[in-house]
Design a binder for these strands. Structure first.
Lengths: 300, 300
DNA sequence: CGGCACTGATGCACAACATGCATCAATAAA
DNA sequence: TTTATTGATGCATGTTGTGCATCAGTGCCG
């Protein structure tokens, strides 16, 4: 970048150009008259042309000085505006926040947090993106998103992870199914039942979580079928081909041709965590965490 | 005007923001790394918010820093442009020049100077104004015009006056007139001749000059009539009511019903001078003087 | 796991620089 | 002429920015 001469003294010149009197201006700037005189000299020397014609009795702007004054008054206004804008970003009063979310957060957690957040910080632009848990980890690491709702638990030294909710899991069955007769369903009741799940590509992290839960109870998961979308899954269950396991947040989206019962077990729950990079200390993220935390706590 | 913090160091920040590496940037700026580090610290402190996130391994812009960078890159471009514009005015490559002229310069001197000037300095805006000699003195003193063609001589410590031409005077007579029979007309021949002149309001300085010339020769000027416009003057002379005295530059505009003869006398001439304020050192004026001088010299 | 290279931050001494004071020359007003 | 006010300037001083040396933190490589 080319060196721009005299930048430091432009403000001084502008002040002087306003009342065209060294002593008065110097006083206004809490400066000695001589210092002001030298600043202007230095500015002119740096620029290579005169800005002011001075006699001992009166000071006037040269034509170049007039032009320089008008243009730079505008430049300084722009600079002031730039500071204002940057500060507003720094204080989190504006700026951009990129939020990723996965299916379980899409129905309640994320939307209600979003609502509150927009009310509290209307000047922050929010960009929402649906990304599954694994993808979020990459996106966060790359800096493509600022914060993500993912399936927990998540633990990594580079990231903050805040658990927002822990929702019960439900077994989804056809309308008449032997399990429905039981007063209370526990994990052990599901042993040997044919289970229909979304395929790995779609359900990924959730399936790993289910596997963990069942194997922790010593129960083998009998995956009878895989479905590639929710409608098909619902249909297959309704047709009696097996059961499936759904988190609470999604059961409202099942059809009327299936029944749901909560799986009563303290660890049979799906945890949703809010994750962001430790190195990302942007105030937008801080502000969003504040809001999401409150929403999460009342939901869990 | 509000104080704008950190202006001095914005350029430094912009340079740093470009490659996000203190050592490399410092080297590029011929600075020690520590000095750069402190400049940025000072800038941030002045602004009150961080512009860069620094770990020992990598430097990145905060969101506020990004915004600050983008905005101020533009601001610095504007400043650069402001310098360029002011310099171009200072060097006389652009700007405004206000030129006043009186009738004798309107036919040849001013137009041909104007032509040359426009070719040499096409970026300088010229504003032309017809003002008679006396009015020009006031306009120049007020700064309403930069330079004027007036009837000379003119001498005043506050002004530069450059004589551009010295044109012979002509006596204007009806087509048949006793004077025309003489092989050569001298001022003494005009003694006792009834003379028709423009009125004081229109001819002002020129009439004073004629009075001077005649009285210097000991000849009384017999003003028989006054005319308020050139056509009337021409008509009155043609009708035989008297003669009049015209400068060379205007005789081409007389009708065919009059005759002209040069008045042969070294001091019977009309001088046109170019006048401008000594305090006005604007390059536009200098440039115009250069051109007008050349035109004037070849014309005189 | 242990050097190694490279990062930005910091303590310190020094030099450069801007500042304030006193004063000057020029000029307008009284 | 006197007086007051203008901007410029010489000089001593205090502030400030700079460079050098060094530190602590971190990724890389064997």
């Amino acid at each position: 970048m080319k060196n721009l001469p005299g930048l430091e003294n432009v403000q001084t010149f502008l002040a002087l150009a306003q009342d065209l009197n060294f002593r008065r201006t110097a006083e206004r700037l809490h400066l000695d008259q001589s210092a002001l005189s030298r600043r202007i000299q230095k500015l002119e020397q740096g620029l290579g042309f005169r800005l002011l014609d001075r006699t001992t009795r009166e000071v006037s702007l040269t034509q170049a000085g007039q032009r320089f004054y008008q243009d730079n008054a505008e430049v300084m206004r722009s600079y002031d505006e730039a500071i204002r804008a940057a500060r507003s970003v720094a204080e989190g009063k504006s700026g951009l926040l990129r939020v990723a979310y996965m299916a379980f957060a899409a129905t309640e957690l994320m939307p209600s947090a979003m609502l509150r957040f927009r009310q509290a910080h209307p000047h922050i632009e929010v960009r929402l993106e649906y990304i599954r848990t694994q993808g979020q980890k990459i996106a966060l690491a790359n800096g493509d998103v600022d914060i993500g709702y993912m399936i927990g638990p998540f633990d990594h030294p580079d990231f903050h992870a805040l658990q927002l909710s822990s929702e019960p899991l439900y077994v989804v069955t056809p309308r008449s199914h032997p399990l429905l007769l039981r007063p209370k369903i526990v994990p052990a009741d599901l042993a040997g039942q044919p289970v229909i799940l979304g395929n790995m590509r779609e359900w990924e992290e959730y399936r790993w979580r289910l596997n963990d839960l069942f194997s922790a109870e010593g129960i083998a998961l009998d995956v009878a079928l895989e479905a590639s979308n929710t409608l098909a899954l619902n249909g297959l269950v309704a047709a009696g081909l097996g059961i499936t396991i759904y988190p609470e947040s999604l059961i409202g989206f099942l059809g009327r041709n299936v029944e749901v019962r909560q799986v009563m077990h303290p660890s049979f729950r799906s945890r949703t965590v809010l994750v962001w990079k430790r190195s990302n200390r942007s105030p937008q993220v801080q502000a969003f965490v504040q809001v999401a935390k409150q929403i999460g706590l009342q939901a869990s």
